[in-house]
Design a protein around this nucleic acid. Structure first.
Lengths: 147, 147
DNA sequence: GCTCCTGTAAGAAGATATATTACAGGAAAG
DNA sequence: CTTTCCTGTAATATATCTTCTTACAGGAGC
């Protein structure tokens, strides 16, 4: 099992918007070309990011822009925006434990809270990561290429 | 997206083996009945758990038993045993970032290591959790019912 | 008013998860 | 040694999810 690529697509979109904001008109097709997926997918992700207040969409010359400074966008913000994990949680509890079995009837109680804790541990790590660091690293890698 | 239910099925299987070990002959059908899934699924998970040295499978009177004390089985051990996350990692990076785009060409480098860190944060939390605690909680819940 | 971009619908194709039937082979028990 | 019955596994069927793709309406910007 894996988390939808919408998450990493969104990360690249935000990075590319910042990187090209000043030199290009950034549109869904432009981003789709950079990311290597269909423009429709990009528009979907763009919609999510707009709703979350991360980007601003204009059809004008400015194209798509960031709605707030990179420092204020965490990877968790993006993760939440694109909804890449089911609202039932990261873990999928099997649906029909047997209610006639004492274990089947009570296992949920003991396991659920721990699964929540595990998911939170992952999400807390995402909260610590800022998009400005991703962009910095990417710019550095691009500069390193030039040599 | 969600992690396969094989994980929670395995957790219930280990719990049920411990709980019923002394009073019942534990077989794949017995477990399947408790878990509420098809016996074939249980046999698959059993195979994984056996390979990981967590349970022992016998066709004799003893049935299926734990291969080591509960205290020595962590949730991480089970998570690893059933292989519920792709070996490419929890996160799915989109496949074709454009190599002609500086961002598309370099985004992987900056993001990958962070995704690994996030996944590890989750897995470390699982390592802290012992099956003996799950079983204790479940037994407690069962006793509470009796009143 | 014209252009072109976004938003969205709808359908196709592929991957994955789970259920289900069936059966061979082997271990345990007598 | 024979019978029983449990495991291991293959093959097939659904259902769901993901991503791709085509198409088009409506609206924003120039």
């Amino acid at each position: 099992m894996q988390i939808t690529s919408k998450f990493t697509i969104a990360i690249q979109i935000v990075t590319a918007i910042d990187y090209f904001q000043e030199t290009e008109k950034v549109t869904s097709s432009f981003l789709a070309d950079s990311v290597g997926v269909n423009p429709v997918i990009v528009r979907g992700v763009m919609g999510d990011l707009k709703e979350a207040g991360i980007i601003a969409i204009s059809q004008g010359k400015s194209g798509i822009t960031l709605a707030k400074p990179l420092e204020k966008i965490s990877m968790y913000d993006i993760y939440k925006a694109v909804d890449c994990v089911s609202e039932d949680g990261l873990f999928h509890f099997h649906e029909n434990p047997n209610a006639n079995c004492p274990v089947g009837r009570n296992i949920h109680k003991s396991v659920d809270k721990r699964l929540v804790r595990v998911q939170k541990a992952m999400e807390n790590e995402l909260k610590e990561m800022s998009m400005s660091d991703i962009v910095k690293d990417t710019r550095k890698a691009i500069r390193a290429e030039a040599r």
